[in-house]
Amino acid sequence: MSTSAITPVPFGRRLKRFMADRPLVPLIILLVILVVILQILRPGIVNERWIANTIKFAIPLAILAGCQTMTMLTGGIDLSVGTVATVSAFIMATQIVNQDPVIAFLLAMMPAVLIGLINGIGVGVFRVHPLIMTLGTSLIGTGCLQVYQRTVIASGAKIPDFLAWLGTGVTWGFPNALLLFIPLAALIVFTLARTGFGRLLYAVGDNERATRLSGVQYWQVITALYLTSSLLAGITGLLYIGLIKAPSLSLAEPLVLPSVAAAVIGGTSIFGGRGGYTGTIIGALILTVLTTLLTILQMPEGARRILFGLIVLFVTAAYLRIVEER
């Protein structure tokens, strides 16, 4: 339409424009590159089993990263997802011993609802910064879990067969966890793109004052958001215990910071208003593959962590540079 479209644009700029319009493309390219490097370092490692295994481990991370994506869209963050997942998993594993599975499930989800509500009210009504709010509830949740652990120590724990099947099972080469993840991911993507709630998440993160003037009640959005985030985290906990099969007091904690990293690598801005879930899923895959890659390099743990951190920083910076115009 404008004259600049007529003048020929150099290839580099065109490529950049293309990347900026489709931010998923550079992420997918990076993922493929990582897989190729892995194959070169350890020929034959990339096979059907490896892929299924990678996806299995990426899914819990991807769901937790979904919590981060949604909260980050509003300019927030949810650091309590690790604790919520752990608590749900732990309660499920201990209650299933004596209780009906449905009752055990409901009991396992109760702390998730409670922590989500407290987070939402704290952030939405009392305006506590999400970082502090969710860190606080996370610590409280961990403390409560320790108390709870003493009371049930005698009854023992077991992993329900269904969760083990869902967490580790593979059917025709596809991990069973996809049965849970695909509908969940589709729901998140649809919510963000095509529902009023999704719109509000972006709008609140972009300009809260403008949403207020448009009649949006901030506390409602935020409470619903943190409740959703916590519920997702609780479900992740159940899936994760089926995968790890060893309930512990810090089961899902190691996933918290990678979940933030996955969302950021996936192109969601921690300042709010920008991002999406598809990028986050690929971000989670990238982090999982990266972990495998660093594991087979047989480096000492310290060096591995240093490298992991450096790569995350580099990838994020490079990605933003490619995707952001100007």
Partner: peptide, 12 residues
């Protein structure tokens, strides 16, 4: 933006 503001309009 105002269309989505009310709780009952949070759906699709």
């Amino acid at each position: 933006l105002p269309f989505s503001a009310a709780l009952r309009n949070w759906g699709p």
